[in-house]
Simulated scan of single mutants.
Amino acid sequence: MMQAIWNGTVIAESETTVIVEGNHYFPEASVKGDHLRHSDTTSFCGWKGDCGYYDVVVGEDVNSDAAWVYREPYPKAEKIAGHIAFWKGVKVRQA
């Protein structure tokens, strides 16, 4: 079981993450939505496509743009559709 943890709180937990470029992508259903807040930040990857971001929120603490998602990835990255990955201090570890 993989977990994503920030500020001592489990943000996501899943037996089935997808690993791409060293990042664990969690199925969206395994991520606790009350700890995510939509961000207006976007980016683009030449082989994955357009990327959207979320702020990770625990209590009063906000980790801006610490989660990302490819809603409609390019065919080469289709396995991460509907999955969310983390960075910026969010620890991903095996439980």
Results as ranks from 00 to 15, higher is better:
V62R: 10
K32E: 13
P73S: 05
T41Y: 07
P73T: 02
V90F: 10
G49Q: 07
G49Y: 01
A77E: 00
D40E: 14
Y54L: 06
Y74M: 01
A66E: 02
D50M: 02
A67Y: 08
G22R: 01
R37M: 14
V56R: 07
H35I: 09
W47G: 02
I84N: 09
I80E: 03
D65W: 04
Y25I: 06
G49N: 05
L36R: 01
G52W: 04
I19K: 10
G89K: 05
G49H: 07
D55G: 09
A67G: 04
V18D: 12
V69W: 01
A85E: 10
K48Q: 03
H38P: 14
A67H: 07
H38E: 15
E60D: 15
K88C: 11
S64Q: 05
I19T: 09
T41G: 02
A66V: 02
Y54W: 15
K32V: 11
T42Q: 14
H35L: 11
K48P: 04
D55Q: 09
W68A: 04
G89Q: 01
H38I: 15
V31Y: 11
V56A: 15
C45K: 05
E21Y: 06
D61F: 10
D65R: 05
I84W: 07
V62D: 02
Y54C: 01
Y25K: 01
G22N: 09
K88M: 11
S30N: 14
K76Y: 01
E21T: 08
K76P: 03
A29I: 10
H24L: 12
P27A: 10
W47Y: 01
V18E: 11
A67S: 11
K48I: 06
G33T: 13
H83E: 01
G33K: 14
V57D: 09
D50E: 14
V20A: 14
V20G: 08
P73I: 00
K32A: 15
G49W: 03
W87H: 13
D50R: 10
P27H: 12
G59S: 06
K79L: 05
N63G: 11
V20D: 12
N63Q: 15
K76M: 07
R37F: 06
F26Q: 05
G33W: 06
H35M: 13
E60T: 12
F86C: 06
A77I: 02
Y70C: 00
A85N: 04
H83P: 01
P27G: 11
E78R: 06
G89D: 08
V31Q: 12
V56Q: 04
V90S: 13
T42M: 08
A81H: 00
H35T: 11
Y25Q: 08
K88F: 13
W47P: 05
F44Q: 06
G52H: 10
K88L: 08
F44S: 02
A66F: 00
E60Y: 00
K32G: 13
